[in-house]
Design a protein around this nucleic acid. Structure first.
Lengths: 193, 193
DNA sequence: CTCTTTCTATACCGATCAGTACATAATGAT
DNA sequence: ATCATTATGTACTGATCGGTATAGAAAGAG
């Protein structure tokens, strides 16, 4: 056809995701975004539609890659307990290129936007549901392998693990004593006994 | 002296707290604030210093009243388990004039401001520490009364309860199925057995 | 080459932001 | 009643916000 784009949409989207992650939706200005994405303002509008649409795309990409990453982590060890612990350690110390100071983009969005915008309530609610399902499947697997006791209420415990992961990602933003938080994480996992 | 103020500082501060609670710090504009506080802009600056100082004052007032409310709730029933459950029910369904859609002002602040501002990391970190202490004292009390088993790790469990409360207040913003969340809360409290 | 199409770059738009200057109104002191 | 002092109300400031008009640059098609 004609003049090709001079940038890679996926790379630009990943850069936008980082900015929203670090600053939040409102606090991320178009100047911040275009600068970090290395594109000009009209290119952003032509490609993504606008700030809100860009954020929606970035958040959805985050949900996808985050869940994929977690799924792999929950399969990283034959022991369910060990891989669960590894997951929580990752939330506490940062994993997959994430900085615990900025928590989870999805959790941040629940706080900032979900109460005022049903679209983001849906997206972030879906994230929680899928994460809970991941936990539940992992617990079920552990029960089947004999590592975990049969009488566990896998569904409720999975929901608790999701709640705990959210709580952890928030609490880490206040830079608490890591040892204390690790003890708490270990205590949470006693629910699997 | 001279012309007296035409408004009550405490009432105005409570109104400001509500606005920050509903909208967050950045999204709360001075127009929002002065309107809900029923004062003029220069009065706000003369009395509180500025938007940031106003927020700081509102947050500190929130921490104080919130902890007092929770302390009373944790003493509301001779049974530690029952009063703990009552507390979590309050987080889920709203209590003390709070709307679960907007969660906890302190949690919201952890997400929005703590990573970028050590002052608010301190205030919100302090809130968590004091809440954890409240939980721990409650657990200790339950152990002494014989309601809870002696071998509980009160310190770690208290930390988990704080984490869970934070997670709950965030998750409620996405309007999940209340029954599911209540089951999870009940599961958390099995840590007390 | 020339034309057409699409992207890029600059510069701009009205709106809104937090914060303030200034004139007026209201009170206690004298 | 007059003055000093403080609060109020209006109107403004420069800066920044998200979004866009417009002109020029780059590439394929003929």
């Amino acid at each position: 056809m004609v003049r090709p784009k001079e940038f890679d949409e996926r790379i630009a989207l990943a850069a936008a995701m980082q900015v929203f992650w670090e600053k939040g939706y409102e606090a991320a200005s178009l100047s911040d975004l275009t600068q970090r994405m290395n594109i000009q303002r009209p290119s952003l509008y032509a490609t993504f539609g606008g700030k809100r649409e860009l954020f929606e795309a970035a958040l959805k990409a985050y949900v996808q890659s985050s869940l994929t990453y977690i799924e792999n982590q929950l399969r990283s060890d034959p022991s369910v307990k060990k891989s669960m612990l590894a997951y929580f350690q990752g939330v506490i110390h940062g994993a997959g290129g994430s900085n615990p100071d900025f928590g989870c983009l999805c959790v941040n969005t629940m706080v900032e936007l979900a109460p005022h915008d049903p679209v983001f309530a849906d997206i972030t609610g879906d994230f929680q549901a899928r994460l809970t399902e991941l936990f539940q499947r992992t617990i079920d697997h552990g029960i089947q392998s004999g590592e975990l006791p049969k009488q566990l209420n896998a569904s409720s415990i999975a929901r608790v693990l999701t709640l705990s992961a959210i709580g952890l990602s928030v609490t880490m933003k206040t830079k608490p004593d890591p040892a204390r938080v690790e003890h708490a994480a270990a205590e949470i996992l006693t629910l699997l006994e």
